[in-house]
Amino acid sequence: MRKLTALASGLLFSFGLIISDMVNPARVIAFLDVTGDWDPTLGFVMGGAITAASIAWMIAKPRKSAYFGGAIPPMPSQPVDRKLVSGSAIFGIGWGLVGLCPGPAIVALSFGKWEIAVFIIAMMAGMALYNFGLIKLPYLSRKLTKA
């Protein structure tokens, strides 16, 4: 049942990205282009998604465990730290450069464009670089060696 839920969630998530046209990098860049010809579409997508997800959190609140096993994810215990802010800042730069983030990139792979494939390979390389600790940002290692 957990596997089926994961598959169904991935499918619905993907349909949502397609219908809202978030698989189109030009759309995302137009949303970030606040000083140019601004396109608010991404804001509506986020609004809809946050609304639906917040209902799920409300249903989850009185529960201890999820329906098909496992605990309801607890609120993150870590504070807002430099690692969070630096990572998010780097992520945002990449997002602005191409107009793709992980979800839409994977969905857009089906268009068969070489550009999307190159982006995904680089993205997975970036994830691996971080995961395997191949790049350490010097000023971060002082305080944030844990986490």
Binding site: F91, G94, W95, L100, G126, M127, Y130
Partner: peptide
Amino acid sequence: GGLAVGFG
């Protein structure tokens, strides 16, 4: 872009 998105 891909490297920054993945790493970040």
